[in-house]
Design a protein around this nucleic acid. Structure first.
Lengths: 216, 216
DNA sequence: CAAATTGTTGACAGTATTGTAAATAGGTTT
DNA sequence: AAACCTATTTACAATACTGTCAACAATTTG
């Protein structure tokens, strides 16, 4: 009966995306139903189609928004790490990893991507690699760019894995038991990442690689 | 008209699982429709319900089968690495990582798990950790079990990430360009894993951790 | 104040999918 | 050969979801 007051298109879109994010967090990526989003946003479902064109349009818009926000948090954390004192380096690096998860945005970003959303992944990832390389250079002098690329890839893949089935794997490996909770794992990983940038480790690695190539 | 010859229940189940695996590989985990599986297997879809009870029953059975097979391949690869000569260690370790992907089974296992299948993940993972720890001990003497656990977790998470969105991330990071294809990344990771077991790295890591704890 | 614009909604069409029920026939046992 | 078991199928029920359409009302513009 009583119609809702008209929101501006921007307000409506934001409200719908907020609702969609909540729904995705609670039911997973495949369970994103337009009707459920509409109910959460307190409107009728054709209104969503009016604003986003289709279900796929909604998914792409949500992917774009959460990807942008997550990238913002991560890049800011790396920038902060760039200015951290040496004794704070592990904490700063741990904070960088934390930022990939905060507020369910990393989870939603991965899930949206999993649903086939396109988004501007490439430019976001390249910003992160660029800053990460600056971070490694600040810590260890001149380092190999390819290794930064690979490290970022390893961490990114692990983050995706954590989002997708981290809870199950953690449970299967008994990580709930004593000290091995998620935060501790991230700190452990942060330490490894910092040490992996060390020049002596790099040479050690290339030595092994050379030995192997000679064998082929 | 012409009815199919009756298969034994075991044969029928295997044929259906083969079909389901193909379907999942081609359309992804969320797109698993029992009608499509039935078409692929050349039978009517109620027959699948007859043999597996429901769509969920089919998913669980498929998860169990691919999980078992993938675990078999991985554990065998680790066992082989245990008996490898020192100069073959990187190749053997790379082979272990390769085994997690071979034949789409790793991909399907992750995807099925993603669809909510239960399966015997815990016992499989623990077998892998146990063998991995033997491998690390063989290479580096007595090492910390928790670190083996964390390394297995890191690699497993990265494998899951690779399965879920490895192609996109690889593309976003420009890994297609020169030498950074998937196989090279695995070899690079294998080298890191072998070197990470080194005692000097472990002490370096714990030193950083102690320094950070003192700071808190 | 009138008219246009557009955000919003209820009703509906169309399709896809899972699962059920009864019937049929291949294979096995007595 | 008869009877039985069950793998298999056709037809159907029931539901759920996306997207369309025409109408309505809130807001803005002339």
């Amino acid at each position: 009966m009583a119609r809702k007051t008209h929101k501006s298109p921007e307000q409506a879109r934001e409200a719908i995306l907020d609702a969609a994010e909540k729904i995705v967090v609670s039911v997973g990526p495949a369970g994103l139903r337009i009707s459920a989003v509409a109910k959460q946003a307190g409107m009728a479902h054709p209104n969503i189609i009016h604003h986003f064109g289709s279900r796929e349009g909604l998914i792409n818009a949500l992917a774009e928004r959460v990807g942008q926000r997550a990238t913002e948090r991560i890049t800011q954390a790396i920038s902060e790490a760039l200015e951290a004192k040496p004794e704070d380096c592990v904490a700063a690096m741990t904070h960088v990893l934390d930022m990939a998860y905060t507020g369910d945005e990393g989870k939603v970003a991965v899930w949206m991507h999993l649903s086939g959303a396109e988004s501007s992944l490439k430019s976001n990832m390249q910003r992160i690699v660029e800053l990460s390389h600056q971070l490694r250079k600040a810590f260890h002098g001149d380092v190999i760019y390819d290794n930064t690329n690979r490290l970022v890839m390893l961490v990114t893949l692990a983050l995706v894995g954590e989002v997708v089935s981290g809870a199950s794997i953690k449970g299967a490996l008994g990580f709930d038991a004593k000290q091995g909770n998620r935060a501790h794992f991230r700190q452990w990983l942060a330490e490894i990442l910092l040490n992996l940038s060390d020049a002596e480790l790099t040479t050690s690695l290339t030595e092994v690689a050379l030995k192997m190539q000679a064998q082929n």
